[in-house]
């Protein structure tokens, strides 16, 4: 085990797979600009390249390379930059296996940071995960710990499908224990970050830590919260969530996106449909307020869900219902 910052753990996952499989490529803007770049030095320019600011071509090239047998990882830096190339992400990469009747596979990873609520104002702070979650053919990964960042990246690279790897920018420098050597985290297996018997919270990315903070506060009041981190939202481990709700009878979903653009809302709908008989109270959602993320610090903090709003939602869900 080593203590690594989240961002280094992602790199460790990429290294692990590039050493193992010569078909893995790594490319994007602003990387591999000198021979000293750690990936260039180890793998060479056949496999590691800097690209111009051309997201459509970057992602499109990844698709073609993948169809021709390679496993590209595209460094996109910010999830918003995928919006420039939304056709390639949503209407090209995930369509080809299906439209060709299974003749091709498109194994690629789109590595994109999101949710940078640190004064980046309106265009670099979005929580866009739900945009990709419902696209058949895409897989969507949202790690919240350094260990998962490495293990989910490695699994994403080995997966034979296009994977959107959404890492939260505010976790970039968070340190965590990361297993040495080969480390893989399976897709579709949620992590129970804290066990509790009174209320289930489902959260992803940076919101997992906020939920855990809220749970600590609530424990002092005698409310035991179970915190579930799905880790991958496509595929989604609904079973672990339903099992938890069967135990607690109460669900709060926490999501950094505006209310009608959340993963949490989709999870809430699934639980309402498949776990209704377990529920003792209406499901509550804690989301960003329905605005573009503002620049000014107190306004930004007001818009993004914080521990106080999560605590408040849990208290309310405890008071409602039977």
């Amino acid at each position: 085990m080593a203590q690594l910052p989240f961002i280094a753990a992602i790199d460790a996952g990429i290294h692990q797979e590039m050493r193992r499989d010569p078909n893995v490529l790594y490319f994007g803007q602003n990387l591999a600009t000198t021979e000293n770049h750690e990936f260039v030095a180890e793998y060479g320019h056949d496999r590691v390249r800097v690209t111009p600011i051309s997201e459509t071509a970057e992602i499109g090239i990844a698709i073609g390379a993948a169809m021709a047998g390679l496993r590209p990882v595209v460094e996109l830096y910010m999830a918003e930059f995928m919006l420039v190339a939304m056709d390639q992400v949503v209407n090209e990469a995930p369509r080809f296996r299906y439209m060709t009747g299974g003749q091709v596979k498109v194994p690629l990873v789109l590595k994109a940071g999101f949710g940078f609520a640190a004064g980046w104002a309106g265009q670099h702070t979005g929580s866009l995960t739900a945009l990709f979650m419902g696209v058949p053919g895409l897989k969507v990964v949202v790690p919240s710990t350094a260990a998962d960042a490495k293990g989910l990246m490695a699994t994403a690279i080995r997966d034979d499908n296009p994977v959107v790897f959404m890492h939260h920018y505010l976790l970039t420098l968070e340190h965590g224990e990361v297993p040495d050597g080969e480390h893989l985290v399976p897709f579709g297996v949620a992590a129970v970050r804290r066990t509790g018997s009174d209320v289930t919270i489902v959260a992803t990315g940076w919101m997992v830590n906020r939920a855990l903070g809220a749970a600590a506060t609530l424990a002092a009041e005698g409310i035991e919260v179970e915190v579930i981190d799905p880790r991958t939202v496509a595929p989604l481990d609904l079973d672990t969530i339903l099992t938890s709700v069967a135990k607690t009878g109460r669900l709060v979903v926490v999501d950094q996106a505006p209310r009608h653009a959340t993963v949490g809302g989709i999870i809430a709908a699934d639980v309402a449909e498949f776990g209704f008989s377990s529920l003792k109270a209406p499901i509550l959602q804690v989301n960003a307020r329905d605005v573009t993320v503002p620049y000014s610090e107190p306004l930004e903090a007001y818009v993004i869900p914080d521990e106080a709003r999560i605590v408040d939602a849990v208290r309310r869900v405890m008071q409602s219902g039977g």
């Binding site: 073609g64 390379a65 047998g69 090209e92």
Partner: peptide, 27 residues
């Protein structure tokens, strides 16, 4: 599409397949 005969893919979105060809050329 007919991968066995080298016909790798067709996009229905105008221009979208051009980078795919470049990616196959990288391979």
């Amino acid at each position: 599409t007919d991968v066995a005969n080298g016909f790798l893919g067709t996009s229905g979105i105008v221009g979208a397949g051009i980078p795919h060809a470049a990616g196959a050329a990288w391979a």
